[in-house]
Amino acid sequence: MTNRETETTICATNKISADRDARKAFEIAKHDIAQSFLQELDKVITQGRLSELAETTGGIRLSWTNKLNTTAGRANWKRETVRTRNPDGSEASIRYRHHASIELAEKVIDDQHRLLNVIAHEFCHLANFMVSGITNNPHGKEFKVWAAKCSRRFGDRGIEVTTKHSYDIDFKYVWECTSCAMEYKRHSKSINPDRHRCGACKNPLKQTKPVPRAGARKPSEYQTFMKEQMRLLKEENPKTPQKEIMRRVADRWSSREAASVDEVAVGIEHLDLDGADGSESRTA
């Protein structure tokens, strides 16, 4: 390897290490960053109006979820009407309780820039719901007014609120059709090329991320036995608990192993008795 190639390899390794450290630091700090920026948005953009409206229900709740796979965030709002009545049954007063929350996608938001922009976007939705009273046109002109305010006030921090989250989601697994090059992206290894085909042209798929290691290990004899026996026992005993099924399979494996040991022992004994030269032998 030349000096230049060595330097390139070192630089690439250092970048990977730096990216890994940055992700770890973000994971530790992201909850505090999100809460702090939400409070700042409310104070600067709506003069604390959202916190005031949601105070009786515990304020605006922030939560991180693994269930959002294709969008970075979601704003949730509900207005509860509370009526009080006089002793004669007439209505005395009406008040409203605002339930507001923002969900943030664990699998999509992977850096601070994206986090701040997602919170700003969802904050504008809540402002649109709770202050402007718009519930049937989430990205209409009123939303755009709130978006412009946020972008103008926090533009120096990279905030630009648009009508949608235009992020490239970093999926952990990717498969590609061997014929039409259609890609299938997932957060988990939920596609099996041996069983699944391209939905567009029905041709085989190949995994491209991460690239499978060559010469994948075959299942061991024990794994094959367990899989087959689990299937058989479940078919024979559909109402039997999983724990009991596993115990029975383990017993079958133990019995099989014991039988194998006996067979080996008998074979060795025969060899000892017969002798290598065909003569009888004994040991004391």
Score class of each variant (00 low, 15 high):
1 M>V: 09
5 E>A: 06
7 E>W: 03
10 I>W: 14
11 C>T: 14
13 T>D: 08
14 N>S: 06
15 K>G: 01
15 K>S: 14
16 I>N: 14
16 I>A: 12
17 S>P: 02
19 D>K: 08
21 D>Y: 13
24 K>C: 07
25 A>V: 13
26 F>L: 06
26 F>G: 01
31 H>K: 11
32 D>S: 13
36 S>M: 04
38 L>Q: 00
41 L>G: 00
43 K>Y: 08
48 G>C: 06
51 S>T: 12
54 A>G: 04
58 G>K: 04
60 I>R: 01
60 I>D: 00
63 S>Y: 10
64 W>Y: 04
65 T>W: 13
67 K>Q: 04
74 R>K: 04
76 N>F: 05
76 N>M: 10
78 K>T: 12
79 R>S: 12
81 T>R: 14
82 V>Q: 09
86 N>D: 01
86 N>C: 01
86 N>I: 03
88 D>P: 00
92 A>I: 08
94 I>L: 15
95 R>L: 13
97 R>K: 13
100 A>D: 11
109 I>K: 00
114 R>K: 15
114 R>S: 08
114 R>G: 03
115 L>N: 02
119 I>R: 02
122 E>G: 00
130 M>C: 06
131 V>W: 03
134 I>H: 00
134 I>E: 08
134 I>L: 03
137 N>S: 07
138 P>E: 09
141 K>P: 03
144 K>Q: 05
144 K>S: 01
151 S>Y: 01
153 R>N: 03
159 I>T: 00
160 E>R: 12
164 K>C: 08
165 H>Y: 02
165 H>A: 07
166 S>L: 11
166 S>K: 07
167 Y>M: 12
170 D>S: 15
170 D>W: 12
175 W>Q: 00
178 T>D: 02
180 C>G: 05
181 A>I: 11
185 K>S: 08
185 K>M: 07
188 S>A: 09
189 K>E: 15
189 K>M: 05
190 S>T: 11
192 N>L: 06
194 D>T: 09
195 R>K: 13
196 H>N: 14
197 R>G: 05
199 G>A: 04
203 N>R: 14
206 K>A: 05
210 P>G: 02
212 P>S: 03
214 A>C: 10
216 A>Y: 13
216 A>E: 13
219 P>N: 05
221 E>C: 08
224 T>E: 15
225 F>V: 10
225 F>M: 13
228 E>Q: 15
229 Q>I: 08
231 R>W: 11
234 K>G: 00
238 P>M: 05
239 K>A: 08
241 P>W: 04
244 E>W: 03
245 I>F: 05
256 R>Y: 12
257 E>Y: 15
259 A>S: 15
259 A>K: 12
260 S>H: 09
263 E>M: 08
265 A>H: 13
270 H>Y: 10
271 L>I: 15
271 L>N: 11
275 G>W: 01
275 G>V: 01
276 A>F: 09
277 D>A: 09
278 G>K: 07
279 S>C: 12
282 R>S: 15
